[in-house]
C-alpha cells in the first residue's frame, strides 16, 4: 500500500486529495489564460504561456503522484524543455522577425 492509498478522512485518500489539488491548478491555468488572450503586448502573451507551461509541468507531476504513474514525470520533463523552446522561439520572433531558431 503506497502513500497515495492512505486515508485522509471522510473516505478520501491522499490520491483523491492530490487530484483535487491538480484540478485547482487547472482552475489557476484558466485564470492565467486571461493574460495570454488579452495581451495587450506580445511580451505579456509569451510570459503568460510560459507560466501556463510551468503550471502544466506541476499538474503533470501531481497527476503522476496521484495516479501512481512515475512515467508521467517523463512527460513533465519533455514539457519543461519544450516550454523553454517555445518561449525562446516566440521571443526571438518578436525581437528580430525571421530569426525563430
Amino acid at each position: 500500500m503506497s502513500v497515495v492509498d492512505a486515508t485522509l478522512g471522510a473516505g478520501y485518500t491522499v490520491g483523491d486529495f492530490l487530484l483535487i489539488v491538480a484540478a485547482g491548478f487547472v482552475v489557476l491555468a484558466i485564470g492565467m489564460l486571461y493574460r495570454a488572450v488579452k495581451g495587450p503586448t506580445m511580451q505579456d502573451r509569451v510570459l503568460a504561456v510560459n507560466v501556463l507551461g510551468t503550471n502544466t509541468v506541476v499538474i503533470l507531476a501531481i497527476l503522476g503522484a496521484a495516479l501512481s504513474e512515475p512515467t508521467f514525470l517523463d512527460i513533465a520533463l519533455v514539457y519543461a524543455l519544450l516550454n523553454f523552446l517555445m518561449a525562446i522561439a516566440i521571443s526571438k520572433f518578436t525581437v528580430e522577425r525571421g530569426g525563430v531558431l
Binding site: 487547472v26 491555468a29 495570454a36 506580445m42 504561456v49 507551461g53 502544466t56 508521467f72
Partner: peptide, 20 residues
Amino acid sequence: LAAVIVFGAYSLGMAALYTF
C-alpha cells in the same frame, strides 16, 4: 501571432488531458 501563442496553451491542456 496571438493565435499561435494561445494554440501552444491549448496543447498544454490537451497533453494534461491525455496524461489523465
